[in-house]
């Protein structure tokens, strides 16, 4: 099935492009928009964006693959991203990752069969004072321990994504 960017998306794109003297500077913001709509950036979306901005496909692909936030395949409803850098490591991130692997029965980079959870280990999220930290979709969950992690998983299984715990 051919993938087409909607007219609405193109109108939004024009607004974003207007922030820059060159339209192609809006490539990364536009990729964020695609991912917000589709959950990931499909090959077809890269083709469409390349055409929209008058760029070679290779330029778009290079950017998508360079930046870790862009998913090239669908992810679960909840994308669990556990920080494993130094401060979170010292505060128990390896234990959290192990617990998630055990409870969900998946390894990093995998998605549960029901499509609910994708598990990733990520690098510093810039919230080291509240380590260990996990990002779920766009929300940060800070000062986690096993009990809090279990409670959060229960919430998520029932479709509740609590607001930022700050």
């Amino acid at each position: 099935m051919a993938f087409k960017l909607s007219a609405e998306f193109k109108a939004k794109a024009d607004k974003l492009c207007a922030k820059y003297p060159r339209r192609d500077a809006a490539l990364i913001p536009l990729l964020h928009e695609v991912q917000k709509e589709q959950g990931f950036v499909a090959e077809e979306a890269m083709d469409e964006l390349a055409a929209l901005l008058g760029l070679p496909y290779a330029r778009v692909k290079a950017v998508v693959t360079f930046y870790t936030m862009f998913n090239r395949a669908p992810v679960g409803k909840y994308h669990l991203q556990v920080c494993r850098n130094i401060s979170c490591h010292m505060a128990g991130a390896p234990g959290l990752l192990n617990r998630l692997r055990d409870k969900l029965g998946i390894a990093e980079g995998e998605t549960t069969k029901d499509g609910l959870f994708t598990l990733s280990a990520v690098e510093c999220l810039g919230a080291c004072g509240a380590a260990p930290v996990m990002q779920v979709n766009e929300e940060y969950f800070e000062k986690l321990d096993e009990a809090k992690l279990d409670a959060l998983l229960e919430d998520l299984k029932h479709g509740r994504l609590p607001g930022r715990a700050r």
Partner: peptide
């Protein structure tokens, strides 16, 4: 004044990588 979101690359904290990224390239 415009806000521009990065996309997850530590290297973009280096100022010329940041400029590349702001122009829509790999950082």
């Amino acid at each position: 004044l415009h806000l521009h979101r990065g996309a997850g690359a530590y290297i973009c904290g280096e100022e010329t990588a940041l400029l590349e990224s702001l122009e829509g390239f790999k950082g």
